[in-house]
């Protein structure tokens, strides 16, 4: 695989052909706002348009999203902080603020880019903390493989929902969607016996850790993982904390045996 040399903000960088520009920039410590990018997911969706940068190619110079730009030989230079880039990012953020005026995360992000309030009227829809970045849908469908939630509708009416807007029957309560959500629009709420992924899942029963007695995963999650892991599923017993402790004790015992 051939190597590409180009510069970002004047700094010489090297990457593989077709590596995404955002990954290259982040690897070289160059900060670009990218709420819809998550390291756990192999491919970026290109939705939020906040990671805009100015790209200079042999025969074209313009603004594009860094997360979906594969670097090839024709790429000469990238500038991440021009006046134009800043203005476009700020405007897109204002559009997102109009969509999610109440969201703390979006407001924080806005403040970090010198945007105080949106100049546009609100267009709130259901679940008004959601910026429709698609991470939750992607992680649920492609990484976990549960397929519990998805996009519905198009245009400004698009939203993320469980089928028929009912509590998602396919949700295993793993919480991956909440984990990747950049705006905390999805929350994992846990009581002693149950876990709910808000706003998608019904309350899901927790399995108690045989050692400490605390709820460690949902029954459906255990079931789902067992089918995935087959005969290796005994590794699942116990909560993460107890598993670490047990492992540590075993290790300590080994060490003691060696003395």
């Amino acid at each position: 695989m051939s190597e590409i040399h180009f510069n970002i903000n004047g700094k010489e960088v090297t990457c593989r052909r077709d590596e995404m520009l955002l990954d290259v920039a982040l690897r070289h410590g160059i900060d670009i706002p990218a709420p819809c990018h998550h390291f756990a997911l192999p491919e970026d969706y290109g939705a939020c348009r906040l990671c805009l940068v100015e790209i200079e190619e042999e025969r074209w110079t313009g603004v594009d999203a860094a997360c979906t730009y594969p670097v090839r030989e024709k790429c000469i230079a990238v500038r991440t902080d021009t006046e134009e880039v800043r203005r476009y990012r700020q405007l897109n953020l204002q559009l997102l603020l109009a969509r999610c005026p109440e969201s703390e995360s979006v407001r924080d992000l806005a403040r970090s880019m010198d945007v105080e309030a949106s100049r546009f009227p609100g267009i709130q829809r259901q679940n008004s903390d959601c910026i429709l970045c698609g991470l939750c849908v992607n992680v649920c469908e492609n990484l976990i493989g549960a397929g519990a939630i998805g996009f519905v509708g198009r245009g400004a009416e698009r939203r993320v929902a469980a089928p028929f807007d009912e509590p998602a029957s396919q949700c295993i309560g793993c919480g991956a969607c909440a984990e990747v959500c950049p705006t905390n629009a999805i929350k994992t709420i846990e009581t002693e016996d149950e876990r709910t992924i808000k706003p998608f899942s019904p309350p899901l029963k927790l399995v108690k850790c045989p050692e400490c007695g605390k709820g460690c995963m949902t029954e459906k999650q255990l079931e789902f993982m067992k089918t995935q892991l087959g005969n290796k599923s005994d590794v699942l017993a116990g909560c993460p904390a107890c598993k670490v402790r047990r492992r540590a004790q075993e290790f300590a015992a080994v060490l003691r045996g060696k003395e």
């Binding site: 969706y45 939705a47 245009g155």
Partner: peptide
């Protein structure tokens, strides 16, 4: 608009 990217989805709406 398919509703995927912010400027097209929310920009055309505004």
């Amino acid at each position: 608009s398919c509703g995927k990217c912010t400027p097209c989805r929310d920009g055309t709406e505004q």
